[in-house]
Amino acid sequence: MISIFRGLITTLKTTFRRPVTVQYPSTHLPLTPRYMGFPVLTWDFKIQEPYCTGCLVCARVCPTDVITVSMKDNPKAANEESHRRKIVNDFKLDISNCILCGLCVEFCNFDAIIMSDFHEEGSLTRVEQDLPLVTLLDMGKEMQDKGKFTPPPPKKRPPAKAKKDEPATDADPEKQES
């Protein structure tokens, strides 16, 4: 008998609490710092080209086979502007099948692919779910602007001489190998 009134008081208390509802399309919950959305490609602002060399590691390791990559000779490498002899020609990411596992990021040798916090990439047709290289790079640039990406230490092209100029990179030998 008393418990009925106790229950009524409990529900009365919750009546005057703030609703927990988030009106989704107009307001968003804040994303956690390490939120894993779709993988995107990064942009090397120094040389103005993608980090990706099209080495196919990500495509091979991908458990759902959503990545399609092709490689070409880097035109900038010919006139010594870039240290990358090969560069990505075409890149396609089928986000409708991507399971956000992060294996591509884990295995990339050039830090060319990172996990972004993009998660609202729905579309009306299946074709739009295949993100092309340009889109992925744009998304990557946005992530880099947010500071979600620390660029890899510069590779020493001529390894012998630059040793004393860059002691900071030498202190981290593991990163160079990977």
Binding site: T14, T15, R17, R18, P19, V20, T21, Q23
Partner: peptide, 13 residues
């Protein structure tokens, strides 16, 4: 609306 408020929701919006 009342039911939603009691359950800390917003109801039809």
């Amino acid at each position: 609306k009342v039911l939603a408020r009691i359950q800390m929701r917003m109801g039809p919006m």
